[in-house]
């Protein structure tokens, strides 16, 4: 039986008057890929961002309920949001490398967290770039600007950058939506490799992708978690009418 990495309990989120997430409860398995699907505006991205508290910075957001990551309530006053985010890395929709060198991009996180030792930094950067399956492509030009890489390479660099702070959980917010099919395939392959060491939660608008890469899938609609199950079961025998309508393409 797989272990729980994240457990969400009665989570409610409000943007001012707007009730954006309603009573969400779900457990996310360790070392697995969990996909979040649903039509635009259903709350899947908002939910993802509650897991590393990226919603905290938006004014007017109110969050109720509990999220435990490794048995620590991440919304407790004692949690340092910086340390939380070090443990819960994130990859964004569009590749967003800093306008710095490839090396400095990956070194950004470790340096922020106080790593100054050049040798350790070099090792960590190689490890992270290898982890993101981009080492061979960039090892000879680590000093080049990261913005000169192709879109797919940039996104893998961003994954390497997230890995460099050695997180346990990796959140991915539609990481392939801005990429071509070949780059997308590479990232999907990479996600399969990464799940042996990381717990991955991925938002995707692409149901085929969810079916291909995830172990479990959660279907969100208008802020509700409608259905959460093993991926094969959710796609072959959905329990709810709304899930069926969505995966058969009747709306969304």
């Amino acid at each position: 039986m797989s272990q729980q990495a994240i457990s969400v309990d009665n989570l409610n989120l409000y943007y001012g008057q707007n009730h954006a997430l309603k009573n969400i409860s779900m457990d996310i398995d360790k070392n697995s890929v969990t996909a979040l699907i649903g039509p635009s505006g259903c709350g899947k991205s908002t939910f993802l961002r509650t897991l590393n508290r990226m919603n905290d910075m938006i004014p007017g957001v109110k969050i109720e309920g509990q999220i435990n990551i490794h048995n620590q309530n991440i919304y407790s006053d004692q949690v340092h949001v910086e340390m939380l985010r070090k443990n819960v890395g994130m990859v964004f929709q569009a590749p967003n490398p800093f306008p710095k060198s490839i090396y400095d991009n990956v070194a950004y996180g470790p340096r922020i967290h106080g790593l100054r030792d050049k040798k350790k930094l070099d090792e960590l950067i190689e490890k992270s770039l290898r982890g993101a399956a981009i080492w061979d492509e960039v090892k000879d030009r680590l000093k080049d600007k990261a913005t000169g890489l192709s879109g797919g390479q940039q996104q893998r660099l961003c994954i390497a950058r997230a890995l460099a702070v050695e997180p346990e959980v990796l959140l991915m917010d539609e990481p392939t939506s801005a990429l071509d099919p070949i780059s997308t395939a590479k990232i999907e392959e990479l996600i399969q490799e990464l799940k042996t060491s990381y717990t991955i939660v991925i938002v995707t608008h692409n149901m085929q992708q969810a079916a291909r890469i995830s172990d479990k899938t959660a279907f969100f609609l208008s802020g509700d978690l409608i259905e959460y199950n093993k991926t094969e079961q959710l796609f072959s025998t959905p329990k709810h009418k709304q899930t069926e309508d969505y995966i058969t393409g009747r709306f969304g």
Binding site: Q3, N71, Q72, I74, V79, H80, E82, M83, N87, E168
Partner: peptide, 11 residues
Amino acid sequence: MEQPRNMLQKK
């Protein structure tokens, strides 16, 4: 079981 990392540690 791996010991969970501490997110409470002071910077």
